[in-house]
């Protein structure tokens, strides 16, 4: 099982939109895919029309008293399952702190699902926390959406530092520009002067700013489902191909 996490310290940068669309594309290619909505706000859960409720809540899962299996819900799409958010996830840091192997708990829980899935996505809340430390441990690849502004590049530098300081094994980092607006000079300039190296990689594919992405909330479906031929659907496809190098799982 290959685990991808959409993560950024900053909020509102496109983490959830990316996780939902890429998880859908992964499933459509035949890979059994699980999306874990780790954000107590439950945006991804809402998009799939699933109730944001997990029996036993964060504590039940983290302590191992409630099997993760039991919380999984099929989405309306073939091969794509969801581990829903629950409001109690806001206390997940505390629950993790109480657990044995406190920085590896999420990794352990996911390992238990490895037989059922080829690919897992973690949609993370913003910020730096014990949850995000767990995510660094559990993920093979960190997908980092960046809005092309100088400010967001600064938080990106912080993020790269945070990953570099984490104990091994550390995930690979793939950043990409998201919500890019070609009409904005600033966006064009930032994309043109991409900082390279520091062990991280910036994808070639840029996800443009498109109202279709916002419409996901009304339609409650991934963009490729209701606009399969739209440019932004193609961009997500290209991003997914770039991330997997043509081969996922």
């Amino acid at each position: 099982m290959k685990t991808y996490a959409t993560y950024n310290i900053k909020g509102g940068v496109g983490k959830t939109s990316t996780a939902v669309n890429l998880a859908y594309l992964s499933a459509a290619s035949g890979r059994r895919t699980l999306l874990w909505d780790l954000d107590p706000q439950g945006a991804a859960t809402y998009l799939f029309r699933v109730k944001p409720r997990v029996r036993g809540g964060s504590r039940g899962l983290v302590s191992g008293r409630r099997p993760v299996d039991d919380a999984v819900k099929a989405t309306d799409f073939d091969n794509l399952d969801l581990l829903p958010a629950d409001f109690s996830y806001r206390n997940m840091d505390l629950d993790l702190d109480d657990a044995k192997r406190r920085t590896r708990r999420l990794d352990d829980l996911l390992s238990g699902m490895a037989g059922d899935y080829d690919v897992a996505f973690l949609d993370c809340p913003p910020g730096v926390s014990l949850v995000s430390e767990n995510v660094l441990r559990a993920a093979d690849v960190l997908l980092v959406p960046l809005i092309p502004t100088p400010l967001s590049l600064r938080t990106y530098t912080q993020l790269v530092g945070f990953v570099a300081d984490a104990p091994r094994p550390r995930p690979a980092v793939i950043a990409f520009f998201s919500m890019a607006d070609r009409r904005k000079r600033l966006h064009r300039e930032v994309i043109g002067s991409v900082p390279h190296d520091d062990g991280a990689r910036i994808a070639e594919t840029v996800i443009p700013s498109m109202t279709l992405v916002e419409q996901m909330a009304e339609r409650r479906a991934p963009v490729p489902v209701f606009a399969p031929t739209a440019r932004v659907s193609r961009c997500y496809q290209e991003l997914w191909a770039e991330i997997t190098g043509g081969k996922a799982g």
Binding site: A27, S29, G30, R31, R32
Partner: peptide, 23 residues
């Protein structure tokens, strides 16, 4: 297991010609 998008090989075909993945 399933694969939702082709292209498929022309049958008869060896399994090696199937799209990569769990199937």
């Amino acid at each position: 297991a399933n694969v939702l998008t082709g292209p498929w090989p022309r049958w008869p075909a060896m399994a090696a010609a199937l799209p990569d993945g769990p199937l």
